[in-house]
Amino acid sequence: MNAPAIRTVEEAPAALVRERPVAGSGVGSATGAGLTQILLAGWAVAVIFPFVWMVVTALKADPEILSSPWRLPAAAQWDNFARAWTQARIGRFFFNTLLVLAGSLAGTLLVSSMAAYVLARFPFPGRNVVFYGFVAGLMFPVFLALVPLYFLVDDLGLLGTYQGLILVYIAYSLPFTIFFLTAFFKTLPNEVGEAAILDGASQYQIFFQIMLPLAKPGLIAMGIFNFLGQWNQFLLPLVLMPDENRYLLSQGLYFLAVQQGYQNDYGALFAAMTITMIPTLVVYVLFQRRLEAGLTAGALKG
């Protein structure tokens, strides 16, 4: 990903989420302002504290975790991370997750952008039926389809395979991604395509060489959105990936936590959680504005 692309991404949300004064009465007194700060700071502490505690605990030795949960570690136990990575096999799960996401993210963006492009720019009979058919998928929680999905994937011989999970991830990412990208393609100017047709370009060339590059900000927004959604996905791998060697991170972490009662390696568990959190933290800090705009787009009117 090159620098100019990132800049385009950062520009769009600046316009979308500009900090404009909202409630405009001048009554706010100094005590009011103080109280506001206390409330907001209090919530901020409530949000941050568990995560800080998690990272600190990840650096402690097990006896310390049990006897003095409130103190800082006497010496940082980096070995916890090593054990999490190898013995608890978080490294393996990390790699599995990357493998699935590489396929599912590319697939989600390609399949969705092709469909969204057609739905946004080519009127045909039944277009609305197709569009709202996709959008309806936004309403239903995944778990309702879980039982038949499990048997369907098994019948197709895809249970416990990376390909199977990739296809399912793509399918369940389509509703929102198509919804978002259709709106995005509608905003692109018509003239470019028309000029290209006069120059003798085929419709495929127009899409891949002109429209797709123009849609880059939208594609990046959906790339980030789906990265987080798919990285965090828990239910689908839990049901569709029964093979322990192919566990994904969320799932591996869950079983690690459930087994912790027997093995008592708390340090490794907290290190594993920290490792799993890092990629989402990095993506969030880098793309915070763009992500907010994407995540909230569906819920805003219009």
Binding site: N232, F234, L249, S250, Q251, L253, A257, M277, L291, L295
Partner: peptide
């Protein structure tokens, strides 16, 4: 917290 895996 919205972007952190629910499992964590």
């Amino acid at each position: 917290p919205q972007v952190i895996p629910a499992v964590i």
